[in-house]
Nucleic acid binder design. Sequence first.
RNA 1: GAGGCUGUAGCUCAGUAGGUUAGAGCAUCAGAUUGUGGUUCUGAGGGUCGAGGGUUCGAAACCCUUCAGCCUCCCCA
Length: 466
Amino acid sequence: MSKPAIPQGTRDFSPDVVRKRRYILDTLKGIFELYGFQPLETPAMENLTTLTGKYGEEGDRLIFKILNNGLHEIKKEEDKVKLSAEWDKVLSKSYSSPVVTERALRYDLTIPFARYVAMNQNDIAFPFRRYQMQPVWRADRPQKGRYREFWQCDADVVGSTSLINEAELLCIYSQAFTLLGLPVAIKINSRKLLQGLSEICGHPDKMMDITIAMDKLDKIGWSGVATELHNRGIDEAGTALLQKAIEITGTNDEKLAAYDTLMETSASGKAGVEEIRKSLEYYTSLWDGAGDTITANVDISLARGLNYYTGVIVEVICTHPDVKMGSIGGGGRYDDLTGLFGLKGLSGVGVSFGVDRIYDIMDELRLFPQQVSVSAKAIILNFGGENELYALDVLKLCRAAGVAAEIYPDAAKFDKQMKYANKRGVAYVLLPGDEERQTNSVSIKNFVTGEQKKMTIADAIDMLRG
RNA sequence: GAGGCUGUAGCUCAGUAGGUUAGAGCAUCAGAUUGUGGUUCUGAGGGUCGAGGGUUCGAAACCCUUCAGCCUCCCCA
C-alpha cells in the first residue's frame, strides 16, 4: 500500500485556504463585472493543434498532453505498429503524434479565448470584453511560487485598437491591488519600443535576444546584461546604445521624452513611445488613485515572454520589502491573435492575475481580513433522547432566520461536543437540554467570552443575527 | 534541459567513531471530568527508518542503483 499523495506541483486546498482564495477570486470578479466584462468558461482540455505553436518552443514543451483513450479504438494493425513507434518520441515532449495524443490541458486562458472568439464571431458584439477565472496546467518543474496546476484570472478586450482599453486594464490592476491591500508596481513597456531599440542598435532581427537579456537587469545588473548581450551576438556599439537607453531615468514623462529622441530613426520605436504615453494619459484621467500604493512606471527593460504581444506590455510585481516573488500579473496587446484561427484583423489587449502567487504573498503578509475565515456561526449540542428532536427544532429556526448553524449529530459526551465546537472556531454554542426544553428556551454560550445565558429561542436567534 | 538539498509515526523533526526492543513534540483515542471548551495531568495505539541491492557478526546510519519531494538556474504566473 503506497502512501496517499497528489501529483507533483498540485495542491489540496483546505477549508480555510479555499475561503481565502475565494476572497481573492470574488474581489477580482467584482471588479471585472464593475468594468463591464462578461464571464466566459472554456473546457479544461483543448485540441492539441489549438495550442501548439502559440507559446513558443519552450511553451510547446510545457503543454500537458492527454493520452488518446476512451474515444479511440485502434483497429488497423499498421496504426498499432505506428503507435508503439511514436510513443517514445511523444514522451520527449517536443514531439506530437495524433496517433498517441490529440488533446491537451489548457495552458493559459488567452488562446482558448481567441479560439472561442473565432468560433463565435457571428454572435459576439465587438468590442468584446470578457473575463475568465479557471485553472491552467503546465508540465513545468515546480518550485517556489510555481505550480503545475494553477489559476489564472484574465480580462481581455478584442475588437478595439483604442488605447482606452489599455488604460482600463491598468485601472483594473490598480483597483484590484488597492482592494486586496497589496503594494505593487505596474511596469509598462511596448513591443514596438523594443523593436525600435533593436533597430537603432543595428540588430533589427535580434529583438527577442535583446529583450530577453535586458529583462534580466533586475537580477544580474548591467554588467551581467552586457555579457548576455555579447553572447547573443550584439556588438559593442549596439550594447553601448542599449546601456544609454537603460540608464535613462526620471518621471514617466521625462523617460518617454528621452526615448522619443533616441528613437528618431525608428518609426516603430516612436510609435511605441506614443502608445505608452497615450495609455498613461488615459489612465491618469480614469484612475482616481490619490494616496494609494500603486505606481505605474515606464520600464524599457520589461520583456514579457509570450511571443504574440505586439504593442503595449505590462507586468505587476509586489513592492513589499519582505516579498521575494516574481510577477503576479501581466499582459499586453496582441494585434492578430485570432488570425491564427482564421479571423483576421481583430486586435486584442488583456491582463492576467496570478492568483496563486497573490495568495502566497497575502498569506505571508497576513493581509486576509479576519472575517474571511469564519464558518458556521453556531453549533447546537445534542443531549439525546427527547432533547435531540428539540435541538432539531432550534436548528430549523436558526436556518429559517438565516443563521448558519449545525447540530452535533451524535449524543456524544458533553466534553467531546464542546471540544469539537472549540476546534471548529464557532462564535456560539447552543445548549438545548432538559431544562431548556421544558421552558421552551435555550442556553446560548458565547465561545469567545465564555459568557452563557438562558433565553427564549427567538431572543437567542436575535443575538446570533446581531 | 543543468545543478544543489532532503526522504525516520498522520504532521514537524531528533537519532553517525555502525551495537539489545528506533525516540520527542504535535495530532488521535481513552481516563482524571456522564451539563461546560481552550489549560493541566495519566495512559494507549501508531513506524517493513522511501524502495532495491551491497559491505559487515551486526545497517536508520557506510557504498551503489532507483524513486519521490523541495530549492536554484533556464523559462514563466
